[in-house]
């Protein structure tokens, strides 16, 4: 454990600095996340946007070291303020201390509610187990708490549903159980990894409403991972756009949607069909996502970028174009 004194601005809850995660596969070293830095403030919803395989999920799992071989966290810091006010680096504390934080102060909601629940556990047992693992409550009290939580995530007849097995629940209900499990210990930070991807659109809206409601009630921060820009506009306060393992742009949500700067972000927003206009042809970004084993040098988007210049083969600096709006692109950098 480093004895280094860690600092964190009072309004921030988490600050990830220069995170790098590599996967050692037979084909070569996959640079899944390379030098990602981001901050999460108290009571805010941060969205992490990007296409499949750009390292969103790996980034958030690395925060509590849920990376298993062949994956490896090569460097970086994740500075977190605990409930009792102490500031720690999640990437260098002991496994035991980390286990105390997982599910207690930082909780996850995974993408697929079908497989995120143990088929042999009832809905209630999932919640009870989480509560018992982190506090000295007895199982009976925990069971009552489970019923209360199920009620809070708007499951009808919670005292009956607490006894049902996952296969007896619908997809939306399962995701609600997952959410109830995640908020069981009133976490300070909730990491929602594509919480609505496998759900119907109507259920998606309900789940999003539920999440923002819970955020207000428990005054927690949420990191929302998604590739759905509609969800971002709906719920997020600030957005980080990721491309091929790097953050290319970050801004306030209104700013980002009104004045996207990075060519990739613009491409993404262009690719959203406008329901008002008649569409001749869907917009798209030419080319494919680069292989992360041999990422292109410099800006990783330059092979697909229509503004690409020779300088793009060098690493672009992160520039603050407007207060709180950062872009990593040579178009906006002063040379």
């Amino acid at each position: 454990m480093s004895k280094k004194y860690l600092e964190l601005e009072p309004e921030k809850i988490l600050s990830v600095k220069d995170l790098e995660v590599k996967f050692y596969t037979y084909a070569g070293v996959v640079h899944a996340v390379s030098g990602v830095s981001f901050d999460v403030y108290e009571n805010e919803v941060v969205a992490l946007v990007g296409e499949t395989g750009c390292g969103k999920t790996v980034t958030t799992r690395a925060i509590t070291r849920l990376i298993y071989p062949p994956g490896h966290i090569a460097r970086g810091q994740a500075i977190f303020r605990r409930r009792n006010g102490t500031v720690i680096d999640l990437l260098s504390i002991s496994e035991k201390e980390l286990r105390d934080i997982r599910g207690n102060e930082i909780a996850y909601i995974f993408q697929d509610p079908t497989s995120a629940l143990n088929p042999l556990f009832t809905a209630g047992e999932h919640i009870v187990e989480t509560i018992v693992a982190h506090s000295s409550t007895n199982r009976k009290l925990a069971r009552n708490e489970a019923i209360r939580l199920l009620k809070q995530v708007l499951i009808p007849h919670p005292s009956l549903r607490v006894k049902t097995y996952p296969h007896e629940l619908s997809g939306g209900m399962r995701q609600r159980v997952v959410i109830a499990t995640a908020i069981a210990n009133k976490p300070r930070l909730l990491i929602a990894d594509e919480p609505t991807t496998n759900l119907d659109v109507t259920v998606q809206a309900q789940i999003l409403d539920l999440l923002s409601e819970l955020k207000k009630q428990y005054s927690m921060s949420i990191i929302l991972i998604t590739h759905n820009l509609g969800i971002v506009a709906e719920i997020a306060d600030r957005v980080y756009v990721m491309y091929a393992g790097k953050i290319v742009e970050s801004a306030n949500v209104f700013e980002l949607f009104e004045k996207p700067m990075h060519p990739y972000t613009r491409g993404l927003l262009h690719a959203l069909p406008d329901p008002v206009r008649r569409i001749e042809k869907l917009e798209y970004i030419p080319g494919t996502v680069p292989s992360l084993i041999n990422p292109p040098p410099g800006c990783r988007f330059h092979p697909r970028c229509k503004f690409a210049k020779r300088v793009c083969r060098e690493e672009p600096p992160m520039v603050e174009v407007e207060p709180g709006h950062y872009v990593a692109c040579w178009l906006y950098a002063k040379r």
């Binding site: 509590t64 849920l66 286990r99 105390d100 934080i101 997982r102 599910g103 207690n104 909780a107 996850y108 995974f110 993408q111 697929d112 497989s115 995120a116 629940l117 143990n118 088929p119 042999l120 556990f121 187990e129 989480t130 693992a133 982190h134 997952v178 499990t181 995640a182």
Partner: peptide
């Protein structure tokens, strides 16, 4: 399977994950 990862992410000890989540399955 995701529920094992979910159990780990909830901060359960290795022993609990092994004997309560994996063994019965």
């Amino acid at each position: 399977q995701a529920f094992v990862e979910a159990a780990r992410s909830l901060g359960l000890s290795t022993w609990r994950v092994l004997f309560r989540h994996i063994l019965p399955n």
